[in-house]
Structure formats: C-alpha cells, structure tokens
Simulated scan of single mutants.
Amino acid sequence: MFSKQVVLITGASSGIGAALARRLATEFSDIRLVLAARNRKKLETVANDCLKTAAEVLVVPTDITQVEQVTALANSAIEGFGRVDALVNNAGYGQMGPIELLSPEDAKRQFAVNFHGPLVLTQALIPVMRHQGGGRIINVSSLGGRLAFPTGGLYSSSKFALEALSDTLRMELESFNIKVSVVEPGPVKTDFFQVASEQLQLALPDLGETPYRALNQAIPEIEQRTSRLAWSSEQVAAVIIQALRDRHPRPRYVAATGGKTMLFLMTKLLPRQLVDIFWKRFYSINKVEQDWRSHKSSLETGVNVEMS
C-alpha cells in the first residue's frame, strides 16, 4: 500500500511527528516524506535519519500559524512529488491556565496552531487528493478533544474543534475516496508539559498573585501523575500508521492506556458531578476552592488574609 506513497507530516521535527517519519521510513523503504515544522535544523536531523532507508524526503520549514506558509507547504509538496497520498496534521501544543486569565492573543495562537493551520492545509490538499482518486487525512487530536478539564480549556476547545472538523470532512469527502480519521493520544512522553509550563509562565507571570495561585505547582504534579501511563511517541506513531493502513479506517483511534475505558466512564457512565470532582482534584482546582473558602471565611470573621 505504501509503495511510492507521499505522506506529509506537520510537527515533524520532534515528538510524535518525528517518530512517525522515522518509523515510516524504516518500514517502507520507498516511501516519500514531506516533513514540516518551524525548526529547519531539527527537521534536517529527522530527514537525515529517514534518508538512511527512505527513497526521498522533502523538508519544508513552516510556521503553521502563517496562512501563506501553510499554502506554500502544500504547493511545495505538489511541486516536489506531484501528489500527496496522506496528510498527517500532527502539529500542536497546549496552552494551560484558567480561562479568566488568558488573553485573546493566547486563544488566537492556540487555535491558529491546533485548528486553523490544519484547516488551511487540508483545504489546500483536498482538490489534489480528489483529482488523484483519493487519499487519507489523519488529524492528531487528544483525549482532551473529547474530555474538557480545568486549566486546559483553550487546548480542549481547539481539539474539540479539530474533531468536529474531522467528522464533517469524513462525511463530505467520502464520495471522493478521501478517508478522514482522528487519533487521540493520552499522556505522551514528549516535551508537552514543559512547553505548557513555559507557555503558562509567559502568559501568566503573575499567576501567584491571583486567586488561582494554588495552580503554580499544578503542572509538575500533573506530569508526575500521568508519567506512569504515558506512551512513547513511537507507540502513538504505530497507531497513526494503523489508521493509514486500515482499508476501512475508523473515525477515531484511541492511543492511550485505558483510554477507551476512561472515555466510557467520563462520557457515558459517571454522573457529571463526579466527573467534575475528579478533574478538579486532578488539576488542583480543589485547592483554589479551598483557598477561596478560607478567604471568604476570613472576611466574615474579620481576619485579614491576603487574596488577590
């Protein structure tokens, strides 16, 4: 199936995207890869690894937030190989923090990377896939695209949108033999939480002076809680390859230990109130509630306790 196939991967300089490129190159020696990400040096490192076995690799440095660069990426792939058989929209990141405190610019960038970039690239390649007789589109979402949780509101919102887009595309493109699937990783051993923590510090440097100050230590704690369940990038890449290879691909592929069970419990079985309690404790919002109750109590008793 993958003989001479052209696969375009965004976010290919590290993590899941890099693992997918290397694995495809290893398993299918005559595959042709288009690798896109912002960092040319990292992309070229991945490309050199792939070239040890792959027939051809095209590196296209791309800022997925820039429409012109996304369009140029699609054009470069077509000019380089004449077709694109599979698109893997993998580029993404997580913007963490309470919704109240995040700026409109934070929201715009989150959606630009996780939703608008994949949308523009997909739109550019649909006519190509239709003309060549079909293709595959894999959108890498997250369990956070099915489950919303505190401090991850922008991230989940962008992934919910990506999943809705995928469902719509799956129905609209079926008659053109263009198959659309979503891959939903859970925790992954990448720099996701490091990037999320850095983004949080940039967006909210004064978080400790707000009513949400208890969240200052939340991200490292969350990373510790999830580390034992985290998959490697290579494991997630294997699921993406399964979605690419399946003759009749499923709408969604869960790439997480216990992910299907969690989705069933959280969306079908457990009362909403219990689900809310679980997530509030997991993401330390319960500590924010405790601080706020103490603050209100101090006001009522006349004791001066500082609370922004």
Rank of each mutant, 00 (worst) to 15 (best):
R136F: 06
I137W: 09
I137P: 00
N139W: 09
S141G: 12
S141N: 05
S142Y: 01
L143N: 07
L143W: 03
L143E: 00
G144R: 05
G145Q: 07
G145L: 00
R146H: 10
L147T: 11
A148C: 04
A148N: 04
A148T: 12
F149I: 13
F149L: 08
F149H: 03
P150T: 11
P150W: 08
T151H: 00
G152C: 04
G153N: 08
L154D: 04
Y155K: 02
Y155E: 00
S156Q: 04
K159S: 10
K159P: 07
F160Y: 12
A161T: 10
L162M: 03
L162V: 06
E163F: 01
L165R: 11
S166A: 10
L169D: 13
L169M: 15
L169Y: 15
L169P: 08
R170L: 07
M171N: 15
M171F: 14
M171I: 15
E172R: 06
E172G: 07
E172Q: 06
E172Y: 07
E172P: 00
L173A: 10
L173Y: 05
E174R: 12
E174G: 07
S175W: 12
S175G: 09
S175T: 15
F176R: 01
K179R: 07
V180P: 02
V180S: 01
S181Q: 03
E184P: 04
P185I: 05
V188C: 06
V188S: 02
V188I: 14
V188D: 01
K189E: 05
K189A: 05
F192K: 00
F192W: 15
F193D: 01
V195S: 13
A196Y: 00
S197Q: 15
S197A: 12
E198K: 10
E198Q: 13
E198M: 00
Q201H: 02
L202T: 09
L202P: 01
A203Y: 09
A203M: 05
L204F: 07
L204S: 02
L204W: 03
P205E: 02
P205C: 07
L207N: 11
G208Q: 12
G208I: 03
G208W: 04
T210F: 07
P211Y: 09
P211G: 11
Y212I: 13
Y212E: 01
Y212D: 06
Q217L: 05
I219N: 01
I219L: 03
E221I: 09
E223D: 13
E223I: 09
Q224T: 12
R225I: 15
A230F: 06
W231N: 06
W231C: 01
Q235A: 08
Q235P: 08
A237R: 08
A237D: 11
A238Q: 08
A238T: 13
V239R: 02
V239L: 04
I240K: 06
I241G: 07
Q242H: 15
A243Y: 00
A243D: 03
L244S: 08
L244P: 03
L244H: 06
R247M: 09
R247Q: 08
H248Q: 14
H248F: 07
R250E: 04
Y253F: 03
A256R: 08
T257S: 10
G259I: 10
G259T: 07
K260M: 15
T261V: 15
T261E: 11
M262T: 13
L263I: 14
L263C: 14
F264S: 14
F264L: 12
L265C: 09
M266Y: 09
M266K: 03
K268S: 10
L269T: 13
L270G: 01
R272P: 14
V275Y: 14
D276Q: 14
D276I: 11
I277F: 05
I277W: 11
